[in-house]
């Protein structure tokens, strides 16, 4: 078993910021994650490097999935039709919940001192 870090490591912080970006402070937490990413993306510590790169890339993909895709649905669909609203809300809720769940799994891995891999396209390895 890997040793459990005593202080909040950049790996854990990165995953926390990924979740905060989704749940509490979208945008603001992303900026903090960006700073963390720039500081630790080439870290000598593999665990830090993997979590920081993964959570940053996953945040970018999450932003696309939660902003761009619903935006496209709203722009191309007729919002006076209830079917479009049903699709839009169902997509947003399911997608958001799924992304949060991936973040929880990644945070659990970071807390246990283990690497993670978001199953998202474009995630940095």
């Amino acid at each position: 078993m890997n040793p459990v870090p005593r202080r909040i490591s950049p790996a854990v912080l990165a995953e926390v910021l990924y979740l905060v970006n989704l749940l509490l402070a979208p945008g603001l937490a992303f900026l903090a994650l960006l700073v963390l990413f720039r500081r630790h993306r080439a870290s000598a510590d593999a665990l830090t490097r993997i979590h920081v790169r993964q959570s940053f890339a996953a945040s970018v993909v999450a932003g696309m999935l939660l902003v761009v895709v619903p935006g496209l649905i709203a722009l191309t669909g007729d919002l006076s039709r209830p079917g479009i609203w049903t699709l839009l809300l169902l997509y947003f809720v399911s997608c958001h919940a799924g992304l949060v769940m991936l973040g929880v799994l990644a945070l659990a891995r970071a807390l246990a001192g283990k690497p993670c891999a978001y199953p998202l396209p474009g995630a940095l390895r």
Partner: peptide, 10 residues
């Protein structure tokens, strides 16, 4: 959820 996965990871 975090608790369950964290414990299984450790």
């Amino acid at each position: 959820t975090l608790f369950a996965f964290n414990m299984v990871n450790r």
